[in-house]
Amino acid sequence: MKNIAQYARWTGAAAAFALVAGCATGPNANPADPFEPLNRGVSSFNETVDDAVLVPVATAYQRVLPSMVRSGVNNFFNNIGDVWSLANNVAQLKLQGSAETFMRLNVNTFFGLGGLLDVASEAGIQRHEEDFGQTLGYWGVGSGPYVVLPLLGPSTLRDTVAKPLDYYGDPLAHMDDVRWRNSLVALRVVDTRAQYLRAGRLIGDAALDKYSFTRDAFLQRRRSQVYDGNPPDDGAGK
């Protein structure tokens, strides 16, 4: 029941965000980003939190822990993420992706010390990351407008609506021990942010408009993910 209630809160939050965002449209809005004024405000808030909290913590994490330990942490969370990727590969009827993801899970869990070692990649078993937003896109649901979510960052309306199921499909969300669950979620956030420290600095130094650069890069990457790296040239966004 707790997970159902959390799912409902997520769905309500997504719907509320879309409703509020609709008030921010303007006559000169970018077709891909009609909520730009609101998105820029949320993006500015996220950057403030990132600079004040995540960057210092991620920097300390990167400096204190040896690369081998950080690699083990990253492998562990990737292995956990493969559980939901498997479900979405199956939902998209991707036989090869489903089979290889299933093999990755078993190989890394049983022979990689619970996922700390990425034995599957060394054996040439490809990783197929999929989430519910990609599954919706695969079945023809359009991406909708670009949105920036508080703390969660760049998204689309479709992916925002999909996030409750992505949350529900996260194995960490089903841990009964709240302290362990919150600790692991926090560790995953820090580990993920540490991987993009250098990229974040490069974007900040190179981009004349960081917001526009991030938006365009995200939308292009997301479209590529939905089409498995081979998007059509028709210009229609998925």
Rank of each mutant, 00 (worst) to 15 (best):
Q6I: 15
W10D: 05
T11E: 00
G12W: 09
A14N: 13
A14W: 08
A15N: 13
A16K: 01
A18D: 12
V20A: 09
G22Y: 06
G22L: 03
A24T: 07
T25W: 02
P27F: 12
D33Y: 01
P34G: 07
F35S: 05
N39Y: 02
G41Q: 09
S44E: 15
N46L: 13
T48M: 08
V49L: 14
V49I: 15
D50Q: 08
D51I: 01
D51F: 05
A52M: 06
L54W: 08
P56E: 09
V57Q: 04
T59K: 05
A60M: 13
Y61V: 13
Q62H: 14
Q62A: 15
Q62P: 04
V64R: 03
L65D: 03
P66I: 12
S67I: 00
G72K: 07
N75C: 10
F76C: 00
F77Y: 15
F77N: 06
N78R: 14
G81F: 08
D82P: 03
A87D: 02
L95F: 14
L95Y: 11
L95P: 05
G97S: 15
T101K: 00
T101V: 06
F102Q: 02
R104S: 12
N108C: 06
F111E: 00
L113I: 12
G114A: 12
G114H: 08
G115K: 13
L117T: 11
D118R: 00
D118E: 13
D118I: 09
V119C: 12
V119P: 10
V119L: 14
G124R: 11
I125E: 03
Q126F: 01
E130R: 14
E130P: 04
G133C: 08
Q134S: 09
L136M: 09
G137M: 02
G137S: 03
Y138W: 08
V141T: 10
G144L: 01
G144M: 06
G144E: 06
P145T: 06
V147G: 09
V148G: 01
L149V: 15
L151C: 11
L151M: 15
G153A: 10
P154G: 07
S155L: 04
L157Q: 13
D159Y: 02
V161E: 03
P164N: 08
Y167P: 03
D170C: 04
A173E: 11
M175A: 00
D177E: 08
W180G: 12
R181T: 03
R181I: 01
L184D: 00
L184G: 06
A186M: 12
L187P: 10
R188S: 13
V190C: 04
R193Q: 13
A199D: 14
R201H: 09
L202S: 11
I203H: 00
I203N: 06
G204F: 11
D205Q: 14
L208D: 10
D209N: 15
D209Q: 06
D209C: 09
S212F: 03
S212Q: 08
F213D: 01
T214M: 10
D216V: 09
A217K: 02
F218D: 07
Q220A: 14
Q220W: 12
R223E: 15
Q225R: 08
Q225S: 11
V226D: 11
P232V: 13
D234P: 04
D234W: 05
G235V: 01
G235I: 00
A236E: 15
G237A: 12
